[in-house]
Design a protein around this nucleic acid. Structure first.
Lengths: 340, 340
DNA sequence: TTGTAGGCGTTATCAT
DNA sequence: ATGATAACGCCTACAA
């Protein structure tokens, strides 16, 4: 830290404890071959002086930094979701004794963004890098892996082989279950809604739903144009195209919000005129009325799994799975009723 | 980064460019006295080799790290609000060219938490520390200031004198305006709701509202017990104690959510039977129906102001204000109607 | 204009 | 069991 009067160093501790710097280091790092009385004498001085080893010194010397670099995605995109992930990742890493270093973000794929990423990952005080939104970064990530880095990524296809890429995905079977749910309730007119900026798995789950649900008994609306339209436009288009009662299947949080807003704005009753089904990464306890029905994945579980496996891998465990799929759980709401 | 084949150092660049390490350093740091052809030759090698200076080496040598340590508050408390602040702070800092290092958090005031804080701030690769929830940490912060650190803090009284403590607060005048608003609409029965875990300013604003509004024309309910009760309990108590129509003044997001939920659950019409007025740190575009009325402060503006002044101070500007007060703006909703 | 040398705080190696 | 030493990558005062 700059401007600091004098932060004690291991040399200060050594002098005060009447030992050498090596012995202080041995105490800090818990070496076995240091007798109890020496150890306690040194520790006393450390406590009393408020000494903390310098991370710069340690990493320079080649020690593990116990720190993960975090790369955020496009700032304007899904800021709520990304904020939750950043926070959850920091918490998970902290619980495992790791710090996180967050650096410059930007639109993936531009030279400027690549520079920002490398500035963080090559800073020398980071053991691995995590991309909270890897879309558009596949080339960069492969490059970094070739250069020997350990990487974690959200929204990125898992690597085959023994690479050091850790990934996590949603169990796509949720789409089959959601389609069955809609069928049992008798819905015949269904529209899929998904933010263009959403996690890649959201789009995959939509595709899977369409495949599982489409048939003579059910018409599923999911226009090509959805990938370029805001959720508000998608919802409006669905309400214009389909007759009530209809079902909106929302694959992410912005879609859910847009569906509720549009229903209220048009004076439609949620759960009767318009049914809303959530299916994707959704936080618990949304302040919606009526409460949301559907199937949700927990964002915290997702990043928690990534953090845990990545750090286990960093600690040397060879058996940390490179990829995991998280499971959904039902949301017992009232936003999706039987089709009148 | 560990396990990396060979990250090029300034010595490698020097050899390849046919100059000495000092010249490479001069190029990196933009010294003036290096001729253009030398500079471009060195830069070419740097680009081609993908060289990035080691942060550890730089900070060890005494250079500014351009990195701010971020201390989170209690994990379980107000996680949504805190996630938003962490994300917003990282973004603001990044925009100013600073990284953020997030380390172990914990209940402030315990020895274990102090250790975690110091581990981050004394790591040697941090120019300042920011507490996103300084409640309970006043002693520690004063201690750190005495030790010469630069600190930013949310929810902490500003320091008088020329200390290096940067703070930010809400303009309490919002309470006066909210009280006037309630009076104009003719409300006579009012209850204040505020999460016990909320930002300190939320409680202060509540107190100010009570002071500004209480009188023969208006009864303001804000029991002592509120500080120990969940927002759900506070809302329920208010609805039981006061006759409809009544006004719930909500000083934070959990309070707003609880108010809407309770109204719906009891079959009361928001804006008629129950009016809801938001007054505090609230995100924009909440998916509430009817939309929220009230006065909101922007969380991003708050941390943005803190980040900007703190970093200006770190950059050597003597005139960066130590404290700032952010202003509220109206929320044009329909959740607070005239009292029938 | 450029190179040389010393040191920032730490730890691994070697010698005692 | 402990101390001396070198090295990690970088910056800067000084010398050329």
């Amino acid at each position: 830290v700059r401007n600091q009067p004098h932060k004690p160093t291991s040399a200060d501790i050594a002098t005060l404890a009447g030992v050498s710097r090596s012995t202080v280091s041995r105490v800090i790092n818990g070496y076995q071959n240091v007798p109890e009385d020496t150890r306690s004498r040194v520790m006393a001085v450390i406590e009393q002086q408020g000494y903390y080893p310098s991370l710069s010194g340690q990493t320079l010397r080649g020690k593990r930094a116990r720190c993960v670099g975090v790369i955020l995605g496009e700032p304007d995109w899904g800021s709520t979701a990304q904020a939750a992930m950043l926070y959850a990742f920091s918490q998970s890493a902290q619980a495992l004794g790791y710090k996180t270093l967050t650096g410059r973000a930007g639109a993936m794929g531009t030279p400027e963004s690549d520079r920002g990423v490398r500035e963080v990952l090559f800073s020398g005080c980071v053991d691995a890098g995590v991309f909270l939104d890897a879309r558009g970064g596949a080339t960069l990530i492969r490059q970094l892996l070739r250069e020997g880095l350990t990487i974690g990524a959200l929204g990125c296809a898992p690597e085959t082989g023994d690479g050091r890429l850790y990934t996590v995905g949603l169990n796509h079977a949720v789409a089959v279950q959601a389609a069955a749910f809609a069928r049992v309730l008798g819905h015949r007119r269904v529209a899929l809604v998904c933010d263009p900026c959403s996690h890649v798995d959201a789009h995959a789950v939509c595709a899977r739903f369409q495949q599982a649900a489409a048939g003579p008994a059910m018409r599923v609306l999911w226009p090509e144009t959805a990938a370029r339209q805001t959720v508000e436009m998608q919802v409006a288009a669905a309400l214009d195209a389909l007759q009530c009662p209809l079902l909106l299947v929302c694959a992410d949080l912005p879609a859910v919000f847009a569906a509720y807003r549009a229903a209220y704005a048009r004076g439609l009753t949620v759960g009767a005129d318009v049914s809303i089904l959530g299916m994707g990464l959704l936080p618990p306890d949304l302040p919606l009325w009526p409460p949301l029905s559907g199937f949700r994945f927990d964002p915290r579980e997702m990043v928690g799994s990534l953090a845990a496996r990545l750090i286990r891998g960093l600690e040397g465990a060879a058996d940390a799975p490179r990829h995991s799929e998280i499971q959904h759980c039902p949301l017992e709401g009232a936003s999706c009723g039987p089709c009148a």
